[in-house]
Simulated scan of single mutants.
Amino acid sequence: MKGKNLRYLNEQPSQGQRPLQAGFVLLEHFSLPAFTQALDTIVTANLLRPNLFCSRTFGLHEGEVVSDLGLVIRPDAHLDGSQLKDLDLLVVCGGYRTELKASDAFIHLLKAAAEQGVTLAGLWNGAWFLGRAGLLAGYRCAIHPEHRPALAEFCKATQVSSEPYVIDRDRLTAASPSGAFHMALDWIKGLHDKALVEGIEDILAFEESRYRRIKPTGNICLSAPLREVVKLMAANLEEPLELEQLAVYAGRSRRQLERLFKEQLGTTPQRYYLELRITEARRLLQHTELSQVDVLVACGFVSPSHFSKCYSAYFGYRPSKETRLVK
């Protein structure tokens, strides 16, 4: 492996370039797997090209923090305003049992970080804290499905996605450990070249995940009727079913089905179905040799113009601009 990955090293790294500083705020009962996935990606980048990044952990108070797995972590420092000036990225690490409660001091720190141009990220339910600070207005974000309704209550100007991770300008959010890995990888991809990203994937043995569709509902606790509808949607991307058909299959009325989606997934059936089709289209464009026309047909779009419009609205660029990752 070492010999294989030597090709990813820069033999003459840039002199005098300051390592980017990433800070991780560990909230009580934070998701240890999500945190380690993101951190491991950054650490692995340094193995390939030394001194690209520096990382520190912070607590909101002095002393230790207990992770979701019961492991006790002692952060490097207590987070206060003095550290913000050195940070390029600040990651709020939440978890399934992390209490959705933010102190005024924490809200002030997040706002100050945003004002200073620090890129902000949230893992698991970390997006809730960014939203509570008013820092997600006009952004797309990802959050664990259990916490989508709570975020939607006060973030009316935020588009909560069912994707496992979202990078929208200077906001990075992930809803799961797998999403945290891909979030960190895409962040690095935006800063460095493709060779470095491929080297990280090789070392962390995530090559197969690049070709496996990420199913955002895989580990979500859904009611039986909604779970059946979601399965039907995923199995009928090429010829999307009408909402009335889905309601009949689920034994519910259209209004009842819309209420289930809002309560359990924080979105509408139409929006969820479109996200499934759009994200699958992106996967096919990135990881297969199918033409754009073949992809749009496979994902149930009626015309190239409609497909391009939906794709641009969702990802911010046309499907013709999508990066092909097949070798």
Rank of each mutant, 00 (worst) to 15 (best):
V118R: 03
I167Q: 13
A174R: 10
R171S: 09
V118K: 00
A174C: 10
S162P: 04
C155T: 08
L136D: 02
Q159A: 09
T158D: 07
S162K: 04
T119Y: 05
R140L: 00
T119I: 14
R132S: 10
C155S: 15
R140T: 02
G126V: 07
A137C: 03
T173F: 08
A127T: 06
K156E: 14
G131Q: 07
H147Q: 14
V160A: 09
A175D: 09
H144Y: 14
G134T: 02
I167K: 11
R171T: 09
A175Q: 09
E153I: 08
D168S: 08
S161R: 14
E153L: 15
Y139M: 00
A133D: 03
I143N: 05
V160P: 10
V118Q: 02
A157R: 13
V118E: 05
L120N: 06
I167S: 11
A142I: 01
A133E: 06
W128N: 01
S162C: 15
G122A: 10
W124Q: 13
I167C: 15
A150S: 13
R171G: 05
D170Y: 02
P149Q: 08
S161Q: 11
E146H: 12
A127P: 08
L120G: 04
R171K: 14
F154P: 04
T173Q: 10
V166A: 03
H147G: 08
R171E: 09
C141L: 03
A175Y: 12
C155D: 13
T158Q: 05
L172H: 11
S176C: 13
L136F: 01
A133V: 01
L120D: 09
W124V: 12
P149H: 13
W124C: 15
A137M: 02
T173G: 09
R171Q: 05
L120F: 02
P149M: 05
